[in-house]
Nucleic acid binder design. Sequence first.
DNA 1: GTCTATACATCGATAGAC
DNA 2: GTCTATCGATGTATAGAC
Lengths: 203, 203
Amino acid sequence: MADRRAERRAEKRAAIIDSAWGIARRDGLGGLSLHGLAAAVGLRQPSLYVYFDSKLALYDALFLDGYRQLLDFVTERDYTGDPRDALVRFVRDQVEWAGADFVRFQMLFQRSIPGFEPSAESWALALEFYDAASAVLSAAGLTRQADVDLMSALISGMCSQQAANDPGGDRWAQHAEAAVDLFLAAANGRPAHRKVVSTGGRT
Amino acid sequence: MADRRAERRAEKRAAIIDSAWGIARRDGLGGLSLHGLAAAVGLRQPSLYVYFDSKLALYDALFLDGYRQLLDFVTERDYTGDPRDALVRFVRDQVEWAGADFVRFQMLFQRSIPGFEPSAESWALALEFYDAASAVLSAAGLTRQADVDLMSALISGMCSQQAANDPGGDRWAQHAEAAVDLFLAAANGRPAHRKVVSTGGRT
DNA sequence: GTCTATACATCGATAGAC
DNA sequence: GTCTATCGATGTATAGAC
């Protein structure tokens, strides 16, 4: 078909985005420049405007691409089966995924670029991920708002620390099981009212 | 004596730093410019070089000032008394403090400015804070590396979510008690103990 | 210590030829 | 679709007068 052109265009766009990730990993997200990016893909800077309307549009494409990667990563994995085990795997996967690429994590989960707001289309993909994550938590019995808020915060914190302090490692990822069991122990053995306790001593 | 001059100089430096925080809150940390900052304090841009050697030095001053604020905040509070209650107060205070100023949180705990690395002097102050935080955790019985890593991650995540999603609110801060009790219930129902090494952590 | 003037670089974006 | 050329803005930093 005559969509040969659109296809090659999409491929080139993807190549530019890949290259942008590489530069961002080296120079930081805020250090990304169109001149440098163009040079890296064998173009002159104005030619990038054939593929992106503006620099913010490029950032939006990165945001979208990052969530596409994350969503692909999540959907190609199996979080069915025993809900507790699934949640453990989910947490470990998330932390490892975050630790694999700090700037990608930064782009998706932190607000480090002044003036950048994801487009509605990109944000929709982000919401898809949050829905998928909610399903895994919910299946394991974490449905109360407080539980979800806290578990989300813990996963987020583990990802952040892993990405910032031990990129590529597993110092925080290895605590996935402990993290999940903390919550499940509390959520399962919870009567109407929580009334603890802590003697300060040990048993 | 003739330190009148040094005194006024320090005051002016502090005024510049305060103004810089205000601009950063409005334009983002990366959106801070020396021209804009100078105008805001009634100076011309080159005059800022009397007070700061470079823009990175200004960022370092902000980093230092932020940790000074945090350390003042922590030391003026009382985290003695019942260790569990102290830890609950500590967590709540931290989350509220983070939620009070997103860019300050961003400067202290995220790496959003390409090329900026805190100086050794500034970093020393950061370590003071981590020591103080460790003491509060440790007093409550959280001494194992895994416990400290996870509790740190949870506090960090709560702060991050609070600052990014509910600035000035208390959606995450109100879960301080639940967060602490999760950990203490687990830590107390467990025979102890291994030795812990320094966390060296940063979010 | 503050100013004017300016160097000098970088950057995002546009116009128009090919 | 890619280029050359260039604009205009911004931004950091320095020199030197006062």
